[in-house]
Write a protein that binds this DNA or RNA. Structure first.
Length: 545
RNA sequence: GCGCCUGUGGCCCAAAGGAUAGGGCGCUAGCCUCCGGAGCUAGAUGUGCAGGUUCGAUUCCCGCCAGGCGCACCA
């Protein structure tokens, strides 16, 4: 794999800083920026300004020293082929301008090797486990799960593209209190269906779907003691179907029941006890999570002898590491945020780095109907399901929508507006650009020629578009560092916008065959990048709309 | 009470601590004898309040105000 231009530039700056004998601790977080306005170059660094205070020297002076040093390497590495110019601008920014020949070379590479030409191996094969959704099999998936599903799936794909070895897992809470209540709920509904008089407790599952399961259980003559498992399995079937229809597939479904059976929880407890992180108090067994910064210690075995939720979770996460994963990513709803410190504490209790477990809180998507928020209660079965969103808004629009804000931001989603304004949804803007390109490529008399003379692409909109395409890996890197795919949705809209503007000002198919070929090559490049971006987001790319 | 998240034009949102705070919707006026008008061009309105850190703050920190969500021997 050839070296990425960003890596080249960063290396160049680092060499220069080292030459100037500047203490490496001052620039160990050196990062390349992408200026908002391309008049400030294609890449930029603010390192001179940041060093100014520590070196007691004006930023402009430092920038000049760095630039001089860079220039010596310039000749040595013949970087002039890729970089046209390095300039000091503004308060001390060092701006890098890519050469046209480099842009053409890269575009050509995209045409001949597809989007692989843009991939970088940031992950270097590091095994990552991303766990998300993991909803209890006691009801349909809600919009909160839907958002986590969209984000988790896209993040997994992006990390995979960046060279990580990614597995997607769903933790299945298929035993315990909630499953018992589920079984009892079904049992009561069965009696009701046989015309028995019943009292249905408020904390039981109230949803209509319980009747469906009850009817099924009656037909199959399921005994009372198996009703919980039966119902959980029935609901799991629905969940799996919903996820498939949403375009999300998991590599592995991890059963808590099997975890309990395996004896792994006892083994983990034996180790923790030996390390002195477990103690008895008031008839319960406690985990000393305060040793690792938690507010208070946490119960793992209740006084009635049963496990709290934390117990299998400690074993589960230990097992994730034991299966060889070096980086664990969990996507949780905000209702679990208080749980972060105790789980991280358990990771540390085993002597592992707590930063190897990333817990991403995905904020809720609040559904509005007719301008009013829809009250949700899982117990009562009153909530908007993933299924309903899929039916009303569609897969592409909803996935794009769920990812189009930072995961840390709330999402207000008015179904009525979303339906009404479906045409104005940004996803269609991007897909429209894609379809438009396909249409031109389909209908044009001139064929795609990978050896087209790209030097003919001299118009400002053409150059801007090529530069936009080459930002693809930079954006994916941002997604990696922010652990959030939303920047990709922003980027795709920018690519689509750059294309639409180019298209409106310049004809692709002209009387000039050489120019037409160059422009066909350009829009094919755009097509490839949009296709790759939409694939990573799990959104379809229709060649007609 | 404690904790987490959020506050950007009439509305929805961008801006990895950078350069003149960008887009969309809506409103107004234009643009296909020509590759898809689901597009493009032009026009008005601005970072909740008050401090601090920084060469530089929409972004980080403290306080306040407003909204959302949590604070179990539930999961």
């Amino acid at each position: 794999m050839k070296e990425n231009i960003q890596e080249e530039i960063i290396k160049l700056i680092k060499l220069s800083l080292a030459d100037l004998k500047i203490d490496p601790v001052l620039w160990d977080d050196l990062r390349l920026d992408s200026p908002q306005d391309i008049k400030f170059g294609d890449f930029s660094t603010n390192i001179a300004m940041r060093l100014s205070k520590a070196l007691k020297m004006p930023a402009g002076r430092i920038a000049l020293n760095i630039l001089e040093s860079i220039n010596t390497y310039f000749k040595k590495f013949s970087l002039g082929d890729h970089i046209k110019e390095v300039k000091i601008e503004g308060a001390g920014f060092i701006n890098f301008y890519l050469s046209e020949s480099y842009l053409h070379e890269e575009l050509k590479d995209i045409l001949s090797r597809d989007v692989k030409a843009l991939s970088i191996n940031a992950g270097k094969g590091k095994p990552v486990l991303i766990e998300f959704v993991s909803a209890n099999p006691t009801g349909s998936l809600s919009v909160a799960h839907a958002r986590q599903a969209a984000v988790g799936d896209a993040l997994a794909k992006i990390l995979g593209f960046l060279g990580f070895e990614v597995k997607k897992e769903y933790y299945l809470n298929d035993e315990g209190n909630q499953i018992d209540i589920l079984g009892k709920s079904v049992s009561l509904r069965m009696k009701e269906l046989s015309n028995e008089r019943i009292e249905f407790p408020e904390n039981y599952y109230q949803g209509e779907y319980i009747y469906d399961i009850a009817r099924e259980a009656i037909a199959k003559r399921i005994g009372d003691s198996n009703l919980g498992d039966f119902a959980a399995e029935y609901i799991l079937g629905l969940i799996k179907k919903e996820l498939v229809d949403f375009g999300v597939d998991f590599d592995h479904w991890y059963s808590q029941k099997e975890l309990t059976k395996s004896g792994k929880i006892e083994k983990v407890f034996a180790i923790l006890k030996k390390k002195g992180f477990l103690y008895d108090k008031e008839g319960a067994l406690w985990f000393k999570s305060t040793s690792f910064g938690d507010d208070k210690d946490r119960v793992v075995i209740k006084s009635d002898g049963s496990y709290t939720y934390l117990a299998p979770d400690i074993a589960y996460h230990d097992d994730k590491y034991k299966r060889g994963f070096k980086w664990l990513i969990n996507l949780w709803g905000p209702d679990h945020h208080g749980y972060i410190s105790r789980l991280k504490a358990s990771v540390e209790a085993f002597g592992r780095d707590k930063d190897s477990l990333s817990i991403l809180i995905v904020q809720l998507a609040t559904i509005f109907r007719g301008g009013k928020p829809v009250q949700m209660s899982t117990r009562k079965g009153e909530y908007i399901t993933l299924r309903e969103v899929l039916n009303e808004v569609g897969r592409d629009a909803s996935r794009f929508f769920f990812m189009s804000r930072r995961i840390s931001s709330h999402l207000d989603f008015d179904l009525d507006i979303a339906k009404k304004e479906t045409v104005e949804n940004p996803v269609y803007y991007v897909q429209y650009a894609y379809a438009r390109i396909c249409s031109i490529l389909r209908n044009g008399a001139i064929r795609l020629d990978k050896n087209a003379n790209l030097a003919l692409l001299k118009e400002a909109e053409e150059v801007f578009l090529i530069k936009k395409l080459l930002k693809f890996t930079y954006i994916l890197n941002v997604c990696l560092n922010t652990q959030d795919p939303y920047m990709l949705t922003v980027y795709l809209q920018e690519v689509a916008e750059a294309f639409h503007k180019f298209y409106d000002l310049h004809r692709v198919l002209t009387d000039d065959e050489a120019l037409s070929k160059a422009r066909i090559a350009l829009i094919e490049g755009v097509r490839i990048v949009i296709a790759a971006g939409l694939d990573l987001l799990g959104i379809s790319k229709p060649d007609k709309m």
